[in-house]
Design a protein around this nucleic acid. Structure first.
Length: 463
RNA sequence: GCGGCUAUAGUUCAGUGGCAGAACGCCGCUCUGUGGCAGCGGAUGUCGUGGGUUCGAAACCCACUAGCCGCCCCA
């Protein structure tokens, strides 16, 4: 820095747009969600896969689709520098989704050669350069899974589709998500889709000029998306358009019917939504989306997914049909928080307490736990003994915080009561006699105990 | 990427041109081996950033940044 360049005094650096910090009052809920997902996935035979957070840009343009919004305008892409004159700079991209990376890994490690069905799950951040909004961030987290394998492994079977959907319904139920809705559709195989696309274009040609500008654009670029339109005025026209169901090949139709039959048998509720088209190019046949009504506003899609029978080949791999999904973890958590707040409000009847500002998560599985004990040394001379005692109790598996002998006793009690269920007083007497005074906040009970008794009492073992 | 709303203490917010405020929280004292309660006292702060108007700006104007809402899209 040149001397003339006077440093601006206090320009604090903030998290970049669309990214955020998760502080310790939030992370227990995130961990709860993630450990629940891990537990359920493993019951269904899934193993975890971790793939790189950035990949060759081509991976995404080939799989997700050059013309999609994600690839055409939302990726964080940069040119990696060439390390030698002979080397070409490589275009790299922060992953906007993980299915492409997982399938790349499947191909790269020849997992198909095992002949076995691969069931893989991942949890991690994704990056899209969209305008931030509630439930939509530039770095967001997805919990996803893929079922993929050679045809002989049964990867194409409708039982796999139904199993994945049933697993998701179990996951949402177990997490306590209420009022979720599953929308389901079949977009057919690649041929079905091509024929349907052509038919849509044909049907739209004479009427598209009557539609809103967005739909006129879609009619040209991606006619399937017209079906998604929320434009009220255009609904009448949209209802007259051909239905995908009429273009499904007998094989696609049978596949879809078998998925539905398996869902019926396992009691998973669903809505067939002929207008549900997913945005990524690689989807074939079954597509689905789970939505909720609480907490997400307009970004009400909690998770989405579908089958991608041609993806491996698009990436230069062997034929490997598959099905997968991605859960928006940020959205899942917003939903859980909104539900908890709604519950707390209902509990309070007509709430009229304006002074309550702390987030309401009382009684939830993820509410922060109090420490087992707070050790209060009395006088600075007791600090070393306090730290030693803390070490021993921590090694015994207890959660312990240590104060400072410089604190006044009143302050120690205040802090201890906030953090812990017990306070351990360590004064000159206790240190000299190798004992400690243990007080239980809930009961006000206070005892003097030696070190072994202390550990037992804190662990809830009868001395 | 487009449109709208918003930005003041740690938090939630009041403050429509004239001394920067409340509540909760925080710190201290009453109280140097016994907390929660109470009383008293204290600090809360580049009023998002930069410019402009004005004798004077937290307030009015412009730009920027960020958040939220809607669109687009998606998880």
């Amino acid at each position: 820095m040149s001397p003339a360049e006077k440093p601006t005094p206090k320009q604090s650096i903030k998290a970049v747009r669309g990214t955020r910090d998760l502080l310790p009052d939030q992370t227990p809920l995130w961990n709860h969600v993630e450990s629940t997902a891990r537990a359920i996935f493993s019951r269904y035979g899934f193993g975890e896969i971790r793939t790189p957070i950035f990949e060759d840009t081509t991976l995404f343009s080939r799989s997700v689709g050059e013309e999609t919004d994600i690839v055409s305008k939302e990726m964080f892409t940069w040119e990696d520098r060439a390390r030698a004159a002979s080397e070409k700079a490589q275009s790299l991209t922060l992953r906007p989704e993980s299915t492409a990376g997982v399938v790349r890994a499947y191909i790269e490690h020849k997992l198909g050669e095992t002949g076995q069905l691969q069931k893989l799950y991942y949890i991690g951040p994704q990056f899209r350069r969209e305008r931030p909004q509630r439930g939509r961030y530039r770095q967001f987290w997805q919990i996803g899974a893929e079922v993929i394998g050679p045809q002989s492994s049964g990867a194409e079977s409708p039982i796999r589709d139904a199993e994945v959907l049933e697993m998701l319904s179990s996951l949402l139920d177990e997490l306590g998500i209420r009022d979720w809705r599953l929308d389901l559709n079949s977009v057919g195989n690649a041929d079905d889709r091509a024929r349907y696309n052509a038919a849509l274009r044909e049907a739209l040609a004479p009427v598209k000029h009557l539609m809103c500008p967005d739909n006129q654009r879609r009619a040209d670029t991606n006619p399937l998306r017209v079906l998604d339109s929320k434009d009220e005025a255009d609904q009448e026209i949209i209802n007259t358009l051909p239905k995908i169901a009429d273009f499904l090949s007998p094989e696609s139709r049978t596949h879809f019917e078998q998925v539905l039959a398996a869902l019926d048998a396992s009691g998973v509720n669903y809505n067939i939504n002929p207008r549900l088209v997913r945005g990524l190019d690689y989807y074939t046949r079954t597509t689905f989306e789970f939505t909720v009504t609480t907490g997400l506003g307009t970004q009400n899609a909690l998770l989405g997914g579908g089958r991608y029978d041609g993806l491996s080949e698009m990436l230069g791999g062997p034929k490997a049909p598959g099905i997968g999904f991605a859960i928006g973890e940020d959205r899942l958590i917003l939903t859980l928080q909104a539900q908890a707040e709604a519950d707390a409000a209902a509990e309070a009847g007509a709430p009229s307490s304006p002074a309550v500002s702390s987030p309401v998560r009382v009684g939830q599985a993820w509410s922060p736990k109090k420490l087992d004990a707070y050790i209060a040394p009395i006088g600075e001379a007791q600090n070393p003994a306090a730290l030693t005692l803390a070490r021993d109790l921590r090694r015994a598996g207890l959660t312990i915080e240590v104060g400072d002998g410089r604190f006044k006793l009143g302050k120690s009690f205040d802090t201890a009561d906030k953090l812990a269920r017990h306070i351990i007083l360590l004064g000159e007497d206790e240190v000299a006699t190798h004992t400690a005074t243990l007080k239980t906040f809930a009961t006000g009970e206070q005892v003097k105990a030696n070190r072994e008794e202390l550990t037992d009492m804190l662990k809830g073992v009868k001395p």
